[in-house]
């Protein structure tokens, strides 16, 4: 049976990475607005999740946000655009780590189900 709650939260975690990477290559303002919106959604979705790596997942999401928020401000102020792109790359790395931990989480949960 597919767990729709998981589809929902995983969807935003993956979308956070893809939209972020999309901005790094397109340098497009629309893409940036989508990326920051999705990243914030992914962070909020991790609130209160009682998983094994919950704290680490929330930490990476906050790192991604704290990269993207200054990146957005810098980009729209048109002052340090290369720095904005750099920050977005940093956020993408945080998102990749987030996905790696998500996979570890899935393996742990799978093992737990096996034991039962």
């Amino acid at each position: 049976m597919i767990n729709w709650g998981k589809v929902w939260s995983d969807f935003f975690i993956f979308l956070a990475l893809t939209s972020n990477v999309g901005f790094i290559f397109s340098h497009d303002p629309y893409q940036l607005v989508i990326a920051i919106g999705v990243n914030l959604l992914a962070t909020v979705l991790k609130f209160g999740a009682k998983k094994i790596l919950a704290a680490e997942l929330l930490a990476t999401a906050l790192v991604a946000d704290l990269h993207l928020i200054p990146a957005t401000i810098l980009y729209f102020m048109e002052t340090h655009v290369p720095l904005a792109i750099g920050l977005a790359i940093g956020a993408a790395v945080a998102n990749v780590i987030s996905i790696v931990m998500l996979v570890i989480e899935i393996i742990f949960e799978y093992q737990k189900e096996e034991e039962l």
Partner: peptide
Amino acid sequence: IFFTTIGVL
């Protein structure tokens, strides 16, 4: 967050 993003976009 969702509606803010949609509105701005």
